[in-house]
Design a protein around this nucleic acid. Sequence first.
DNA 1: TGCGAATATTCGAGAAATCGAATATTCTAA
DNA 2: TTAGAATATTCGATTTCTCGAATATTCGCA
Lengths: 118, 118
Amino acid sequence: MQSMLREYKASIFQALAHPTRIAIVEALRDGEISARTIQERLGIEQANLSQHLAILRSRQIVANRKEGNQVFYSLRNKALVKVLDMMRRYFQAHLAEEVQMLGEIEAEDPARRKERLD
Amino acid sequence: MQSMLREYKASIFQALAHPTRIAIVEALRDGEISARTIQERLGIEQANLSQHLAILRSRQIVANRKEGNQVFYSLRNKALVKVLDMMRRYFQAHLAEEVQMLGEIEAEDPARRKERLD
DNA sequence: TGCGAATATTCGAGAAATCGAATATTCTAA
DNA sequence: TTAGAATATTCGATTTCTCGAATATTCGCA
């Protein structure tokens, strides 16, 4: 019971434990887009994207809607966006501790800095 | 740059992508405890716990403090707790969609239910 | 000193994740 | 109905993860 919940949590984290899948979720942040669009944005192999999407689907993280020839993907649960936002704060707080990076961060353009942390 | 950040995020998610490591982080939620205590609570092999702690250490998720014979672990960044809280909401929202589980959830004792969702 | 407790590391085997290539499926439009 | 576009699935090779067993390290205390 308790452990089942943890396995479930772990499976969600695991689904996000890949740069490509994080990029996918981030791409879906503002609404649904087609698989083709995602592929173009990420610049990866079609089969590979499909595999990653299959993983996100199997974890119920994304929903897909067929429209004619294409498939549109979207986030099933907006709470995940908030999780990612929280993660961003985590990274900010964490990076602040990294002395070596601190210099670069403070030196760079603020707008660029914000963008980089997205 | 953007992709480095994603790899970093992915590495944090990956560090949490195991039930045992989630249990460890949850055990550290209320403050530092010794490795021995964690091991007793989780009921796992000593070597195995040490391996998982090494992973959390390598991702800078936990800090460790030596005191005599034992080592006390703690969370480096409280923001992670908020991430986990957010995840809990995610699970709750998600579980609410799962019709088959809904029956069981509503049928069970409320106190027990809250505990299970932790 | 040296024994025992607490913790960490190394090693090897088995399981799981990842990728591109090849192939399948489903749809549109000619 | 057939060609081609969009997407999904399968396959096999490679890499990464995970575990327990064995071993190492570090510390307190007799």
